[in-house]
Amino acid sequence: MSASPASIPAPFADPTIAIEMSEMNKWYGAFHVLRDIDLTVRRGERLVICGPSGSGKSTMIRCINRLEEHQRGRIVVDGVELTNDLKRIEEIRRDVGMVFQHFNLFPHLTILENLTLAPIWVRRMPRREAEENAMFYLERVRIPDQAGKYPGQLSGGQQQRVAIARSLCMNPKIMLFDEPTSALDPEMVKEVLETMVSLAEEGMTMLCVTHEMGFARQVADRVVFMDHGQIIEEAHPDEFFKNPRHDRTRLFLNQILN
């Protein structure tokens, strides 16, 4: 309670661990959304989280940056435990980027302003530097020519790539993806996935909630399967797709692969 967040030595501080959830539980009123979640993510690891809708996968990753509050158990992000402390929440949010299903770009700002907003206001970066930084990431997602436009003038795939660039501008240590391709037209899925693959290849710690099993096969270090608020199974993608251990996993894979 009293110590400042930076000086908190997490009890099991291990510099190679990015996120640690232990016995994490969450309720919406009487509804038990997340049950005893235990999950450890190492730095540089790429996780794909899948499961039927309503299984709690989105809720789980939204707990990591406190868009949702958990009621029991611990979440330690980058050595800092999530509590009610505003300073810790803001510190974790600075270091954890998130990409949403519906992009959630700020429609009243240009693309460039979308990208420079947080670096200027949260990281206190000088405007010029923030703009150079933004242009660098816009080039990375291959749309530098759209910098002066407004989000409404871009296609869905372009918007989602801008959203990824917006998160990257904060130089995050961890990236969360909450069904980033579910709201896209099929022909735009590929360009977003390509961006995500290249990000993965650079060693970014990533947690992706997605139904794109091709992406999971290609880049995931581990696939986590959730159902009814529980982690049912986690395994390397080769193992996960070839030999699912659990019936429910098999059923789910059958449904989405056929």
Partner: peptide, 9 residues
């Protein structure tokens, strides 16, 4: 202490 969400509220 002051940055605790509930205490602050």
């Amino acid at each position: 202490m002051l940055s605790d969400v509930k205490t602050r509220s």
